[in-house]
Amino acid sequence: MTAQTKKPGGWGAPVPKGLSGRNILPRTHAPLRTFMVAMAVMTYLAAVAIGGMFMTWRAIQIWKSGVVAEATVQILPLSEPEQNSGKAQKLPATDMNTRVQQAVRFLEKRPEVKSLRVLTDRENRALLQPWLGDVSIMQDVPLPRLIAIRLNPERKIDIAALDRALRAAVPGARLDAHGRWVRALSHMASTVFWLGLGILAAIIIAAVVLVVHAARAALESNRETIEVLHLVGARDSFIARQVQRLFLRAGFLAGMLGVAAAWLTFALLALLAPAEGIREGAWQLLFGAPEKIAYHYGAWLIIVLTATTISLLSARTAAMRILAEMFAEP
C-alpha cells in the first residue's frame, strides 16, 4: 500500500470526517416514524393529565380555603323541655333575638372569630326559597337564626371545643364549620392526585411497551445492516448504542411535540373555553404567578425528560435482549 495519495474526489471535494457522530443505522424508516407519532400522543396525554391535575387541584384548594375560613352558627327554636330547663328558664322562651345577641357577644370575645354577621329573617327565608318555593305561607313557622362567621386564619382552631363552649353559653346554639364539605373536598383532592398518578403510570407502561416493540421493528428492518456490523466485529453493545441514539433523538422530539401540543390545548382553553372557571384555570396554568407556574412548566419538562429517558433506556435494554435472541447462534 505505497500508492501516492492525492486529494480524494478531485479539487474542492470535502474531506471525509469519519463515522463519529454518524448514524450507522439508517434513521429514516417507518418504525421510527410510527414510534415518534405514538410517543408524541402519549406525552401529549401525560402533559394534559398533569395540566388537568394542576387545574383541578388549584380549584379544590380555592374552594377548600373558602369553606374552611367560614362557619355558621345556628340559633334553633327551643322545644318545650328545653324552655323549662337550666339557663333557658331565666330567658323568655320565645325571645330568639335575646339568644342571638347573647351568641354575638360570646363570639365577639372569642379570638378564633375574625368577623361575624347576623343574617336577617328575610335572608333566612330567602335561603329556603330554592327548596320550599314561596315561603310566605310559612310566616308563622319558627326558623333558626343564622350568624355567618369568618374564622381567624392565623389561629389553629379547635372547632369542637368552640362548639361546646357556644352550646354551654347559649341555649339552642350550635356551630357548623362545614366539616363535611371540607372532608369531601380533601377526599376529592387526593382522588384527583392518585387518579393523575395512575394515568401517568399507565402512560409510562404503555410507552415502555411501545419502545420495546419499536426497537424490535427497527432492528428487524435493519437486519442486514446489523449482520454486516456483526461481521466487521461490532459488539451487541455497539449496535444497541446505535439503536439507543435513534430512539434518544426520536423520544426527545416526540416529548417536545407532545408537550407543545398540550400547551396549545390549554392556551385554547384559556382563550375559548365556555366556562369562565376553566378559562381562568387554564390561564393561571400557563401565565399565572411565576412561583406557581414554575411547578407546571417543571412538570412538563420532566415529561419531556421522562419520554427521552424511557426511550433511551428501554431501547437499549430491548436492543440488547433482541440482538441476543435474533442472533443467538452464529
Partner: peptide
C-alpha cells in the same frame, strides 16, 4: 472505515 470505527479507532 466501518471495521475501524466499531473497533473504537478514532477518525483522525
Amino acid at each position: 472505515a466501518l471495521p475501524l470505527h466499531v473497533a473504537g479507532v478514532r477518525a483522525d
